[in-house]
Amino acid sequence: KELVLVLYDYQEKSPREVTVKKGDILTLLNSTNKDAWKVEVDDRQGFIPAAYLKKL
């Protein structure tokens, strides 16, 4: 599985998104959309803007 590093805090703005903190390391589920990547956070799945993430 692929991991990503969170570069900036992000507060979810819709039910399809998830809230993350800078420095979190998350499982990347889908990065086919260049604008928003799907990740898993504490058994929740949701989207975060790709600009907030860096592949490890």
Results as ranks from 00 to 15, higher is better:
residue 5 L to Y: 09
residue 36 A to C: 15
residue 15 P to F: 08
residue 13 K to I: 08
residue 5 L to S: 03
residue 55 K to S: 07
residue 9 D to K: 01
residue 4 V to Q: 00
residue 46 G to A: 12
residue 1 K to W: 11
residue 24 D to G: 04
residue 22 K to L: 05
residue 8 Y to F: 13
residue 13 K to D: 06
residue 22 K to Y: 04
residue 14 S to K: 07
residue 40 E to I: 12
residue 42 D to F: 10
residue 26 L to F: 03
residue 3 L to P: 02
residue 6 V to I: 04
residue 9 D to P: 04
residue 49 P to L: 06
residue 14 S to N: 14
residue 16 R to K: 12
residue 47 F to W: 15
residue 30 N to A: 10
residue 37 W to L: 02
residue 36 A to W: 15
residue 16 R to F: 14
residue 43 D to H: 11
residue 27 T to V: 15
residue 56 L to A: 03
residue 49 P to T: 04
residue 52 Y to G: 08
residue 5 L to D: 01
residue 44 R to Q: 07
residue 52 Y to E: 04
residue 24 D to K: 05
residue 4 V to G: 03
residue 13 K to N: 09
residue 9 D to H: 04
residue 7 L to K: 04
residue 48 I to M: 11
residue 52 Y to I: 15
residue 29 L to C: 05
residue 16 R to Y: 15
residue 52 Y to S: 07
residue 54 K to P: 05
residue 41 V to P: 01
residue 31 S to T: 09
residue 34 K to A: 13
residue 3 L to F: 14
residue 36 A to P: 03
residue 13 K to F: 08
residue 47 F to L: 07
residue 23 G to Y: 03
residue 18 V to T: 04
residue 41 V to N: 08
residue 32 T to P: 03
residue 2 E to P: 11
residue 3 L to M: 11
residue 26 L to Q: 00
residue 8 Y to K: 13
residue 39 V to Y: 01
residue 26 L to H: 05
residue 53 L to A: 05
residue 39 V to S: 00
residue 45 Q to Y: 08
residue 56 L to V: 10
residue 49 P to C: 07
residue 34 K to E: 12
residue 34 K to M: 12
residue 54 K to G: 05
residue 38 K to T: 09
residue 53 L to F: 01
residue 8 Y to N: 11
residue 16 R to L: 14
residue 29 L to M: 06
residue 24 D to E: 12
residue 41 V to Q: 07
residue 32 T to D: 15
residue 48 I to P: 03
residue 48 I to R: 00
residue 48 I to L: 12
residue 16 R to D: 15
residue 51 A to K: 15
residue 20 V to M: 02
residue 26 L to W: 04
residue 26 L to V: 13
residue 36 A to R: 14
residue 20 V to L: 04
residue 51 A to W: 14
residue 42 D to S: 11
residue 32 T to V: 10
residue 40 E to T: 08
residue 15 P to Y: 07
residue 37 W to C: 04
residue 10 Y to D: 01
residue 36 A to F: 15
residue 11 Q to W: 14
residue 41 V to L: 12
residue 29 L to T: 04
residue 8 Y to V: 10
residue 16 R to P: 06
residue 19 T to K: 06
residue 42 D to Y: 08
residue 6 V to N: 00
residue 44 R to C: 07
residue 19 T to D: 04
residue 42 D to I: 08
residue 15 P to N: 10
residue 15 P to K: 09
residue 55 K to Q: 08
residue 28 L to F: 03
residue 47 F to I: 06
residue 35 D to G: 10
residue 44 R to V: 08
residue 12 E to R: 13
residue 26 L to T: 01
residue 14 S to V: 06
residue 22 K to D: 01
residue 28 L to E: 01
residue 28 L to D: 00
residue 54 K to T: 11
residue 7 L to F: 02
residue 1 K to G: 10
residue 52 Y to L: 11
residue 8 Y to Q: 14
residue 43 D to Q: 11
residue 1 K to A: 11
residue 41 V to T: 13
residue 49 P to W: 06
residue 11 Q to H: 13
residue 13 K to L: 10
residue 9 D to W: 04
residue 15 P to I: 09
residue 38 K to Y: 15
residue 49 P to Q: 03
residue 3 L to A: 05
residue 10 Y to G: 01
residue 2 E to W: 12
residue 37 W to Q: 00
residue 24 D to V: 06
residue 44 R to L: 06
residue 31 S to D: 15
residue 22 K to F: 05
residue 29 L to R: 02
residue 48 I to Q: 01
residue 15 P to M: 09
residue 30 N to H: 07
residue 14 S to L: 09
residue 56 L to Q: 03
residue 23 G to I: 02
residue 26 L to G: 05
residue 46 G to S: 06
residue 51 A to T: 11
residue 8 Y to E: 13
residue 3 L to H: 09
residue 4 V to W: 04
residue 37 W to A: 01
residue 39 V to W: 02
residue 9 D to I: 03
residue 45 Q to G: 05
residue 3 L to G: 02
residue 51 A to S: 14
residue 40 E to D: 05
residue 9 D to G: 04
residue 52 Y to Q: 05
residue 45 Q to D: 07
residue 55 K to D: 05
residue 4 V to R: 00
residue 54 K to I: 12
residue 14 S to F: 10
residue 5 L to H: 02
residue 32 T to H: 12
residue 20 V to Q: 00
residue 26 L to Y: 04
residue 50 A to D: 05
residue 12 E to Y: 06
residue 13 K to T: 13
residue 44 R to N: 05
residue 55 K to Y: 09
residue 22 K to Q: 11
residue 25 I to C: 06
residue 52 Y to A: 13
residue 17 E to C: 08
residue 48 I to E: 02
residue 33 N to R: 12
residue 13 K to A: 10
residue 45 Q to F: 09
residue 20 V to F: 06
residue 35 D to L: 13
residue 41 V to H: 09
residue 29 L to W: 03
residue 1 K to H: 13
residue 17 E to D: 07
residue 20 V to S: 03
residue 50 A to E: 05
residue 4 V to K: 01
residue 30 N to Y: 06
residue 50 A to I: 08
residue 50 A to Q: 06
residue 6 V to K: 00
residue 32 T to Y: 10
residue 20 V to N: 00
residue 33 N to W: 09
residue 25 I to V: 11
residue 54 K to D: 08
residue 25 I to F: 04
residue 53 L to Q: 00
residue 2 E to Y: 11
residue 32 T to N: 13
residue 21 K to A: 07
residue 55 K to G: 05
residue 51 A to Y: 13
residue 53 L to S: 00
residue 45 Q to K: 09
residue 26 L to K: 01
residue 10 Y to I: 02
residue 30 N to T: 08
residue 1 K to V: 12
residue 11 Q to V: 14
residue 2 E to F: 11
residue 50 A to H: 05
residue 10 Y to C: 03
residue 28 L to Q: 01
residue 17 E to G: 15
residue 16 R to V: 12
residue 21 K to Y: 09
residue 12 E to G: 15
residue 40 E to W: 08
residue 23 G to A: 01
residue 42 D to T: 07
residue 22 K to P: 02
residue 41 V to S: 09
residue 8 Y to G: 07
residue 47 F to H: 06
residue 36 A to G: 09
residue 45 Q to S: 11
residue 45 Q to C: 11
residue 41 V to A: 09
residue 3 L to D: 02
residue 7 L to A: 02
residue 53 L to I: 05
residue 23 G to F: 03
residue 50 A to R: 11
residue 32 T to M: 12
residue 27 T to P: 09
residue 47 F to V: 07
residue 22 K to R: 13
residue 50 A to G: 08
residue 7 L to R: 04
residue 54 K to L: 12
residue 20 V to G: 03
residue 37 W to H: 02
residue 10 Y to W: 06
residue 46 G to R: 05
residue 56 L to P: 00
residue 2 E to R: 13
residue 51 A to M: 13
residue 14 S to M: 07
residue 5 L to E: 09
residue 55 K to A: 07
residue 12 E to F: 12
residue 32 T to A: 13
residue 17 E to N: 07
residue 46 G to H: 12
residue 19 T to R: 06
residue 7 L to Y: 03
residue 42 D to A: 13
residue 36 A to Q: 14
residue 12 E to M: 15
residue 24 D to T: 09
residue 7 L to V: 06
residue 5 L to W: 05
residue 5 L to I: 14
residue 31 S to C: 14
residue 46 G to Q: 06
residue 4 V to N: 00
residue 46 G to M: 15
residue 6 V to A: 07
residue 8 Y to P: 01
residue 50 A to N: 06
residue 35 D to Y: 15
residue 30 N to L: 09
residue 8 Y to A: 14
residue 20 V to W: 10
residue 22 K to N: 03
residue 3 L to E: 05
residue 17 E to R: 06
residue 17 E to S: 07
residue 19 T to V: 04
residue 4 V to T: 01
residue 10 Y to P: 02
residue 26 L to D: 00
residue 31 S to K: 05
residue 28 L to I: 04
residue 23 G to D: 04
residue 3 L to W: 14
residue 55 K to N: 07
residue 31 S to M: 07
residue 41 V to I: 13
residue 28 L to V: 06
residue 13 K to V: 08
residue 12 E to I: 13
residue 21 K to P: 01
residue 1 K to L: 12
residue 2 E to N: 12
residue 5 L to T: 04
residue 3 L to Y: 14
residue 2 E to H: 11
residue 16 R to E: 15
residue 42 D to M: 12
residue 23 G to R: 02
residue 18 V to Y: 04
residue 17 E to P: 08
residue 14 S to D: 12
residue 2 E to M: 13
residue 13 K to W: 06
residue 42 D to P: 06
residue 31 S to V: 05
residue 36 A to H: 14
residue 39 V to A: 02
residue 36 A to V: 15
residue 7 L to I: 09
residue 15 P to A: 12
residue 20 V to C: 08
residue 12 E to T: 11
residue 54 K to S: 10
residue 4 V to I: 04
residue 8 Y to M: 15
residue 48 I to V: 15
residue 6 V to E: 00
residue 30 N to E: 15
residue 20 V to R: 00
residue 28 L to T: 01
residue 9 D to M: 03
residue 48 I to Y: 01
residue 18 V to N: 03
residue 16 R to H: 14
residue 38 K to C: 15
residue 40 E to H: 06
residue 35 D to S: 10
residue 39 V to I: 08
residue 29 L to A: 03
residue 46 G to L: 15
residue 49 P to Y: 05
residue 21 K to N: 07
residue 43 D to V: 07
residue 34 K to H: 11
residue 51 A to D: 14
residue 23 G to V: 02
residue 51 A to L: 11
